[in-house]
């Protein structure tokens, strides 16, 4: 098989968009095939009817993943895109993505856990990382981060090194026959301040000069 013929095989011309009822089909903003993978785009108002249709009418029985993209600083109409990866596992198996455009001002979407159970954890993770609220999800606790974590770390405007959460613990030290908790002291070495800062690079250069 040559690379060209493989590429032709992968570029599937089938689209679930064609079988959408006309009013819904007109709401599909964009349809993109990249590397043989299909993506449909729609607005947040149409998310629930579209997903209901794909589940009940077109037999997409498996929600592979729910995640989001933060387009902060890019030239986009809306800041967020929530991505649903849908798969039909029975006959005519097929997989595509539905990208739902979501504004920064009201990052809310109706939940779809009643359609696919796997949405529970996907929505929890998306909430945990991006702060997007899925209305109606009964268990929107944090999934990966500690429950008292304040921020949403995958937002583009969230600093990579966090906002000081890494230093929040007490220092446990043995004193006599007990263990006491102290404030952690200033961290005296370059370690913990972040290794990739200009100051650190400067320090390493200075220290590595021959004396």
């Amino acid at each position: 098989m040559t690379p060209e013929s493989m590429a032709v095989d992968m570029a599937d011309t089938y689209s679930p968009c064609d079988a959408l009822p006309a009013p819904l089909r007109s709401q599909v903003i964009d349809q993109i095939v990249h590397q043989g993978q299909l993506a449909l785009h729609c607005t947040s108002a149409d998310q629930r009817p579209m997903l209901e249709h794909f589940k009940t009418q077109q037999g997409y029985d498996f929600l592979v993943d729910v995640t989001a993209i933060d387009h902060l600083g890019m030239d986009r109409t809306e800041r967020f895109e929530v991505v649903y990866v849908l798969r039909r596992t029975r006959e005519n198996s097929h997989q595509f993505r539905l990208h739902v455009w979501l504004s920064e001002d009201s990052p809310n979407l109706p939940t779809v856990f009643d359609l696919w159970d796997s949405a529970r954890w996907g929505e929890r993770e998306t909430h945990d990382m991006f702060g997007i609220v899925f209305d109606g999800n009964p268990d929107l606790r944090r999934l990966l981060m500690p429950e008292d974590y304040p921020g949403f770390p995958l937002l583009k405007d969230y600093p990579l090194r966090g906002m000081g959460e890494r230093r929040q613990f007490p220092n446990v030290v043995p004193r006599g026959d007990q263990i006491v908790e102290e404030e952690p002291g200033d961290y005296p070495t370059s370690i913990g301040r972040g290794m990739h800062t200009p100051e650190y690079t400067e320090e390493v250069r200075r220290d590595s000069k021959p004396r």
């Binding site: 981060m145 921020g151 090194r161």
Partner: peptide
Amino acid sequence: FDTYTLIQGVDQFMP
């Protein structure tokens, strides 16, 4: 792993 989720040295918080 100099990121938001990783403790930068456990010796900050225990001996």
